[in-house]
């Protein structure tokens, strides 16, 4: 039940953002609002990642995990894309786990 409610709420929120301006027929949003929107995704994503990154992974392969995240971060920074970051990170982890790091 909780899951259904969450999904329904997310669906409504998404539909609202997609339809609002179309329903209002092409009215331009205020300039200040447009400027603010440029910073919303980057701020939210950084706020999501930073605390999670601090809670260090535990158990087997800890060092491999940190190295994998480091390599992934480097490629994410250089390429600005998801897949190179993901693939390089996972390959690093797998390669290191063969050596039991």
């Amino acid at each position: 039940m909780g899951t259904a409610l969450r999904i329904a709420g997310m669906a409504l929120a998404t539909f609202f953002t997609r339809y609002a301006m179309i329903a209002l027929v092409g009215r331009e949003p205020p300039v200040l609002f447009r400027r603010w929107l440029r910073y919303v995704p980057v701020a939210l994503l950084a706020a999501l990642i930073a605390p999670a990154a601090l809670s260090s992974p535990a158990g087997a392969g800890v060092h491999g995990r940190w190295l994998a995240l480091g390599v992934g971060a480097l490629l994410a920074w250089r390429t600005k894309q998801v897949l190179p970051s993901l693939v390089s990170g996972l390959v690093t982890f797998w390669a290191l786990s063969i050596f039991g790091i």
Partner: peptide, 10 residues
Amino acid sequence: PLAFLGLLMA
């Protein structure tokens, strides 16, 4: 975390 790093950097 890897996917989100890529998203963030973009």
